[in-house]
Amino acid sequence: MLAVFVNCAAIVFGSIIGLVVAGRMSKKMEDVIQTGAGFITLVIGLQMAFKYENICFLTLAVIAGGIVGTVIDLDGKILSLGKLLECLVPQKKSCSENCIEPNKNFAYAFLNASVLFCVGAMAILGSFKAGIEKDYSIIFTKSILDGFMAISFTAAMGIGTAFSAIAVFLYQGALTLLSVAVQPYVSDVMLAELTGSGGVLICMIGVNLIGLKKIKTANYLPAVIFTVVFVLLDSPVRNFLGM
């Protein structure tokens, strides 16, 4: 669990730096930071998305996941959780015209940062390496990347980014503890497909930050579950059909 704590600490530390930076910027500079963070997030998402191996799995997983997530309003539920966490942060009583409210978009920042830091092969593979081999190199590398992204996300959206460390702790902590039991089911194909579907979600975050379209990203989170199901069923179905 050491690597998980380091990753969470990097996110919190990066968020603190981002908050300090944001407190010294005008609304115009905030927009510049948010646009820059949006495009960088989009680039990261595209790099991940193109690592898929089966476009049918990716397409079906994203569409089916989006439908299920919309029906159960997953985005709304996670935003509600973010609003509950916001109560733990002291509210600023006043704010001048040019200063940035630290709690602005708290739930939105919590949601987007949680998705960004939790999806992807580094979170999964790094947790397995840490849990099985006591090799923390991947998670430590991820921690550095997450820390820098936390700076830009906090500067753009507020302190809600820091609370995504809770999601990272629960997600990567669970993967680390369950790594021995889960690892046999995680093949190279599984990692590739999960990276692809996760990349699509990150692209959605980038689009939101840039302001091109308002996408309820969390509604597409079930795509990750559908990806796992499709990959696990692929071989049995092929064998049954004699392919």
Score class of each variant (00 low, 15 high):
Ala37Gly: 09
Met204Trp: 04
Tyr220Glu: 06
Thr176Met: 03
Lys129Trp: 08
Ile63Ser: 09
Asn103Gln: 13
Leu232Thr: 14
Thr176Asn: 05
Ala10Cys: 15
Lys83Arg: 15
Leu241Tyr: 07
Leu212Tyr: 10
Gly242Lys: 12
Glu97Leu: 14
Ala165Ser: 15
Ser152Val: 14
Leu46Ser: 07
Gly38Arg: 05
Lys129His: 10
Phe50Trp: 12
Ile78Leu: 15
Leu84Arg: 11
Met25Pro: 11
Lys77Val: 04
Lys129Val: 09
Met243Pro: 00
Lys28Gln: 14
Leu84Pro: 01
Leu19Arg: 10
Gln47Thr: 04
Val207Tyr: 08
Ala155Ile: 04
Asp31Ile: 10
Leu212Pro: 02
Phe50His: 11
Gly126Arg: 03
Gly82Ala: 04
Ile205Gln: 00
Leu81Phe: 13
Leu194Asn: 11
Thr217Gln: 08
Gln91Met: 15
Cys8Ala: 15
Ala150Pro: 00
Lys142Thr: 12
Val182Gly: 05
Lys51His: 13
Val200Leu: 13
Ser137Cys: 03
Ala37Cys: 06
Ile16Trp: 03
Met157Ala: 10
Glu97Pro: 00
Gly82Asp: 08
Gly120Thr: 06
Lys83Tyr: 11
Lys104Tyr: 04
Ile144Asn: 09
Tyr171His: 12
Asn7Met: 06
Val182Ser: 03
Val231Lys: 00
Glu86Gln: 14
Ala37Asn: 11
Val12His: 02
Lys83Asn: 13
Val224Ser: 00
Asn208Trp: 06
Ser235Gly: 10
Val228Ala: 15
Phe57Cys: 09
Val32Gln: 11
Cys203Gln: 01
Val189Ile: 12
Cys95Gly: 04
Gly206Val: 10
Phe230Leu: 14
Leu233Glu: 00
Phe140Lys: 03
Ala113Trp: 09
Leu81Ser: 05
Val200Asn: 02
Gly45Ser: 06
Val207Arg: 03
Thr195Lys: 09
Asp188Met: 11
Ser137Glu: 00
Tyr108Gln: 12
Gly160Val: 06
Ala174Lys: 04
Cys8Ile: 01
Leu85Thr: 06
Gly211Glu: 05
Phe148Tyr: 09
